[in-house]
Amino acid sequence: MMPLRRFQIHQPKTVKEAAEMLSHYGEKGRLYAGGTELLLAMKHDLLRYEHLVDVKTVPGLDEIEIGNASLHIGTTVTHRAIEQSVPVREKFPVLAEMANHVANVRVRSTGTLGGNLCFAEPHSDPATLLLALQAHVHVQGRSGERTLGMEELIVGAYETTLATDELLIGIDIPRIAKSQRAAYLKFQTHERPTLGLALVLDVDGNGRSITKARAAVGSVSPKPCRSDQADALLAGPRDKVEKQLDDAAKVLADAADPVDDLEGSAEYKRHLIGVYLRRAFVKALA
């Protein structure tokens, strides 16, 4: 492999300065966090940038804070910091467990949650789980700040709705209520998941009935997907929902519209959605 082409790294001290740098360098520049995905694409000469804006030099973006209503994760928090965070392990075990299984320990040490979402690699574990958890991201550009849902942020393979001068500064995840059960499962034989499936269920006191469900599937197609219709089939008395799991999986697979790729055929991935939805259901309610 050829060495990386020449580039210069810039060190903004504020989000505003980073936004100005991104705007100034335009297509010749890119925001740089952990670099675990960006640098690989640059090594393969699939992307060329002359300027990298190191968001890690902006203070305060690497913090994890648990509030009354939500968990805030700064954009430069690494997967490892999430997996090791005691409050995350206690209050968001599903998130800590997912983070503990992203790629390998070296990638987890350097890769950041914000970078992962902004790169919008289709085979991303965090994006799928965050979609099911109804996370929002905070984005800031030269002219102001906005908040986006996961579906508004990631719109295709390697494609987000961020403007040239905008950067993701943090992620907010609503607190998981006592009545909620969450599970994230993935199927992986290579370096990236073939399928990731997240399920969040609101259950009544004795667990016999599901009042609300939210499922998301990722890695099978260009971006993580969910379906209101599938979620509706996943709510109701538990024995009824169990009988509807195959139908819900079919609807979810239709929404995701899996693609053939090196990880498997579309048909195979549709089959996996059925298997993993059932497993996630059992795990969430265990």
């Binding site: 690989l40 090594k43 390998n104 070296r106 040490s109």
Partner: peptide, 23 residues
């Protein structure tokens, strides 16, 4: 050279990293 194999592992502040890709 793509952070998959671990041959280039070194430790930074005690944590393993892929030195082939880490700047």
């Amino acid at each position: 050279e793509v952070q998959v194999c671990g041959a280039c592992t070194v430790l930074i502040d005690g944590l393993p990293v892929s030195s082939c890709t880490l700047l």
